[in-house]
């Protein structure tokens, strides 16, 4: 049986205590749902001697607010709480979709929003057991020197594999971080860095406590489309998040982000500019999707080939845009996509 490394398990009762513990224990990590961390630890992807559980922190309401005032979502809210949450059934629907499309029902019961935002970037040279990684010669993300995906690369190309991260960027969300030096609230986009190892600006002692979705004036629609081999279990090998604000049927502003095609959520908002001021029809959407796949640079380190994933980017941007624009879905096998989103 695969086992965790021997470690201490601490259970702070407050966020302040949690940050203090992290600051005073160099070999520590936070654990909430554990669905990303525990498998990674069993594969010895981190050297950790202490886990600091966030599961004894005081429990608040999962979601506070509404679209008019903006929402505050507790980072410890579980994905299965958020997927069907009525507050996410309107303009912020993409977030409900993303939460509902994560892995399996079991993982969604255990996994938290905060944990999903911070999923350790994945790579199929990295998410392997210690002995496998030892056999392949280790990569720079853990125990090794080079990137096995791109051997001459000075950086790590592990893939941002969170479903909620591109949605947070597209929705222009903010996150609140609490650390020993105080509390700060930053745009979701600046939570991430384009590096497979050093992928977040969150400091070691900081806990994400909340995500804030901005107030919506007028109408907003959003959609999240996830590409993966199977309609359950699988991490995204491409995610497309779109959020559009409208003025009487005309696009005021469109934002978008891609997941799983780089080491961070890739903002495609500039490519969506042609939608502004338009009443998007099929042709405009196809044209925008054709161009918006430009920053998608998948590499050969996830399921299926990177050529195909690149090719799918425009297809999925088109599909997500259609949904956000209220056009009927095209043919497509992903009944599971629609079903889970509707839940």
């Amino acid at each position: 049986m695969l086992r965790l490394p021997r470690l201490r398990y601490l259970r702070p009762r407050s966020v302040a205590e949690a940050s203090e513990m992290a600051a005073s224990n160099p070999g520590s990590m936070f654990i909430a749902g554990g669905t990303d961390l525990v498998p990674n630890l069993k594969r010895r992807q981190f050297d950790v001697s202490t886990l600091i559980s966030l599961n004894a922190l005081p429990n608040g309401t999962a979601v506070v607010g509404d679209a008019k005032r903006g929402l505050e979502i507790r980072a410890g809210a579980t994905l299965d709480e958020l997927a069907p949450h009525p507050a996410l059934d309107g303009p912020y629907r993409a977030l409900a979709q993303a939460c509902g499309l994560v892995s399996t029902p079991q993982v969604r019961v255990m996994g938290t929003l905060g944990g999903n935002l911070l999923v350790d970037p994945r790579c199929n040279y990295y998410n392997q057991t210690y002995s496998w990684r030892k056999a392949v010669g280790f990569c720079m993300k853990k125990d090794g020197q080079i990137c096995l995906v791109a051997r001459s690369s000075p950086r790590c190309w592990a893939v941002s594999s969170s479903d909620s991260a591109p949605v947070a960027v597209a929705l222009n969300a903010q996150v609140t971080l609490h650390g020993v030096e105080g509390t700060r609230t930053i745009p979701a986009a600046s939570l991430y860095k384009d590096d497979g190892i050093d992928y977040t600006t969150k400091r070691r002692d900081e806990v994400i406590t909340a995500m804030h979705l901005p107030a919506v004036s007028g109408r907003m629609t959003s959609a999240y489309w996830k590409l993966r081999r199977r309609p359950s279990f699988d991490f995204p090998i491409l995610g497309v998040a779109i959020a559009i604000t409208w003025d009487e049927g005309v696009v005021r502003h469109a934002r978008g982000a891609l997941g799983a095609v780089g080491s961070h959520p890739v903002d495609i908002t500039p490519y969506l500019a042609p939608l502004t001021g338009a009443r998007p029809g099929e042709d405009l959407i196809v044209g925008v999707a054709e161009a918006a796949d430009k920053p998608s640079r998948p590499l050969d380190n996830t399921d299926l080939s990177h050529y195909w994933r690149k090719r799918m980017t425009k297809v999925y941007i088109e599909r997500a845009l259609r949904e956000a624009c209220g056009l009927p879905p095209l043919e497509g096998r992903l009944s599971a996509q629609v079903k889970a989103g509707a839940s």
Partner: peptide, 21 residues
């Protein structure tokens, strides 16, 4: 033991949990 099959599933407060994680 990695949360990839749910064979280890139990219920915690009535909800399906992965005992391996």
């Amino acid at each position: 033991e990695l949360g990839e099959c749910s064979t280890c599933g139990v219920l915690v407060d009535g909800k399906p949990y992965l005992s391996c994680l």
